[in-house]
Design a protein around this nucleic acid. Structure first.
Lengths: 190, 190, 190, 190
DNA sequence: CATGAATGAGTATTCATTCAT
DNA sequence: GATGAATGAATACTCATTCAT
C-alpha cells in the first residue's frame, strides 16, 4: 500500500529526488510559488532537466511538496491520537499542527484543502489527517474537554485560522501563545 | 511635495479612475493577483494605457484597491467605536470586520499587513483601523468583557485568522457562526 | 466578403503585419518551418511580442503565409482562365503554378492540401484554386487538348509532382523544361 | 580507413542494431523525423544509451534508415535491369520505384538526393541506383521506347514527382494509375 | 488625455547527447 | 555492452510597461 510499485529508483536518482523535494519545500514556503523552476533546480544542485524528469510539471512538484507536508502532519496526528488522555491528545495535536505550519505559506492552503481534496494526489494524506482529527475530536468531546456541536470541518477551519494568525505574529513567541490560548480556550465547553 | 501636484482631475478622468478601481477590486478579489493588467483594463472599459496613466504600476493599482477596502473598514470601525456599550461595540466590530473580508482573498493579507505597514501607501488607513481597534479593545478590556493581556497585534492576528477560517467554510452559515463563537468566546476573560 | 470586419488596422500595425508576413514567407520557404520565431521577428525588424500579437501562434503565422501564397496562385489561375484559347490557358496555368511553387518547400504541401483542406483557414483560397482549375481542365478537355478521364484531384497531384520535380532540378532550366514537357505531353490525349 | 574497425559485432549487439533500424524505419516513415530519440529506443525495446552507441547521432540513424531503403530499391532495380525487354524493364522499374516509396514520406527526399548525394553515407547505394537507372534508361532509349534527350537527373526528378503525386492520392488506386499513366506516357517518344 | 501597438525580459518545458551505474 | 538518469541549450509564448498615433 505504501510500497512504490514504480521500480526501486536508483540510488543517485533517489538522492536527487529528495534534494529537489527539500529545495522546493524550502523555496516554495519561504518565497512563494512564483519562484522559477530553474532556481529550484539550482538550489537542489541539479539541472532543470532533472527536475522535470522527476516532476513532469511545476504544479506536480508543488503537489509533491504538499503531500510530503501533509504526510508528516498525518503521522504526528496519528501518533498523538495514540496517547492516553483525550484532552491532552487533542490540544497537543492542535498546537502541533499549527506550529508545524508556521512559515509554510502555501502549505496552509493545502491543509485547508484537506477538507476539500482539490487535487487527487492529496487525497491519501488528507484522508489520513481527517481520520486522525475525527478520532481526536470525538474522544475529546466525549471526555468533555471540547465543546460539542463542533465537527471536523470547523476544526480544520480553526487550524487554518490559527496557522494564519500565528504566522502573522512572526517571532513573538509570547503573542503567539496568547493567540493560541484564545482559540484553544474558545474550543473548551462554555 | 508641497505643490499640489494633483490637479482636480477632469470629470472623465475621474470616472475612468473609479471604473478601474472597481474593476480591479472585483477582478483581484475573485481571481487573484495574477490576472493580466490588460484584462483589468478591459473589464473597466478602458485601454491599458489609461490604466497605467492612473496607476504607474500594477502593484500601485493593487495597493489602491487595498487602501479602498481598508478605508471602508476603518470607517465602520470608527462608527461602531462611537456606540455605547463597550462589549457590544467590540464584538460587533470583530464580526463585522471578519464578515467584510469574506471572499476577499488577497484582502485579508492586506488587513494583516495593517499591523506591519509593508507598503507606505497603506499607512494612513492602517493607522486609522489600528487606532479604532485600540480604542475598542481597551474599553472592552476595561469593561471586563475581553481578557486582559491581549494587545492590538494579537487582535489583528485573530481577525485575520477568523477571516481565513470563515472564508474556508464558504456558504455554511451555521459552521461559520460556530467558528466565530469559538474565537469570540476565547476572547472573553477566563 | 473580403472586407476585413476587424477594424481598419492602424497604419504602423498594418506595416508590421506585412513585414512579418514577408519575412516569414521568405524564411519559411528558404529554411523550413523549424526556424525560431525570434529569428523571424528579427528578420521583420520587430520584437517577438509583436509577432505574437499579430499571429497568436507560430502555426497561425505559417497558415497565414500559406493563405497568402494560395491567394496569389488563385488570382493568377482566375486571370488565365479568362484568356481565350482553352489549351493555352490550361497549359499556361499548369506551368505557372508549377513555377510559382519552386523553392517554396512547405508551400507545395499546402497546395497539395487544396484538395483536402486540412486547416479551415486555407479553405477559402483552396476553394478558389480548385474552382479555377476545374474550369480550366474541363474546357481544355472539351477542346480535346487534355485527355479525358482526368479529374481535379489527379491534376493537383500532378501539379504537386511537377513542383517537386522542378524543385529538385534547381537551376538547370533546360532540365526543368524537359521534365515539364514530359508531364504536359503526358496530359495530352493519346 | 583501411583498418577493419568494425569487429564482427556480438550477436546481441547485432540484434539490437537491427531492432533499432527497424523501429526507426517504422517510426520515421509514419510519424516523421521529429519524433524523440527516446521513443524510437523504446519502440526498439532498448535504452537511449544503446541507440547512441550504435548511431552516434540522430542524423546518423536517419541516414542509416535511408541507406537501407535505397539498398532495397537498388537491388530491385538491378534485378529488373537484368530482364529481357528494355521497354518492359524500364517502365516496370519506374512503377516499382514509385510504388515502393508510397507512404514513405521522408524517404522520397532521400531518393531525390540520390541525384545529389548530400550525405556521403548515401553515396554507395545512390551510386548503385544511378548505375542501374542509367543502364535501364539508355537501353530503353536505344530501343525507341523512351524519348531521347532525357538524362538520369530528369528521370530521378520524375520518380520523385511521381512518388509525391501517388502519395497524395492515397488509397484511390484508379487515380494513382491515371497519374502514373500520364507520366509514363509522357516519357514515351512524341 | 485615451488608445492599443510594440517591446523584450522572463518562464516552463523538451530533447539530443553524455556518463555513472 | 546496456541502461536510463542527468544535463542544459533551445524555444514558444506571456505580460508589465512604454510610446506613437
Amino acid at each position: 500500500m505504501t510500497d512504490r510499485q514504480d521500480r526501486p529508483l536508483r540510488a543517485d536518482a533517489a538522492r536527487n529526488r529528495a534534494r529537489l523535494l527539500a529545495a522546493a519545500t524550502e523555496v516554495f514556503t519561504t518565497r512563494g510559488t512564483a519562484v522559477p523552476t530553474e532556481e529550484i533546480a539550482r538550489a537542489a544542485g541539479v539541472g532543470v532537466g532533472t527536475l522535470f524528469r522527476h516532476f513532469p510539471t511545476k504544479e506536480a512538484l508543488l503537489q509533491a511538496v504538499m503531500v510530503g507536508r501533509l504526510e508528516e502532519v498525518a503521522a504526528r496526528v496519528a501518533e498523538l491520537a495514540a496517547g492516553q488522555d483525550p484532552a491532552d491528545a487533542f490540544f497537543g495535536c492542535f498546537r502541533l499542527v499549527v506550529e508545524s505550519s508556521v512559515g509554510k505559506g502555501e502549505f496552509t492552503r493545502a491543509l485547508a484543502e484537506a477538507g476539500v481534496d482539490a487535487h487527487a494526489a492529496l487525497h491519501g494524506p488528507s484522508e489520513a489527517i481527517r481520520g486522525g482529527l475525527t478520532a481526536l475530536l470525538e474522544s475529546a468531546q466525549r471526555a468533555g474537554a471540547v465543546r460539542p456541536g463542533l465537527a471536523v470541518p470547523e476544526l480544520i477551519a480553526l487550524l487554518v485560522a490559527a496557522g494564519a494568525a500565528v504566522e502573522r505574529l512572526g517571532t513573538d513567541a509570547e503573542a503567539r501563545d496568547r493567540v493560541l490560548t484564545v482559540i484553544t480556550d474558545g474550543l473548551r465547553p462554555r
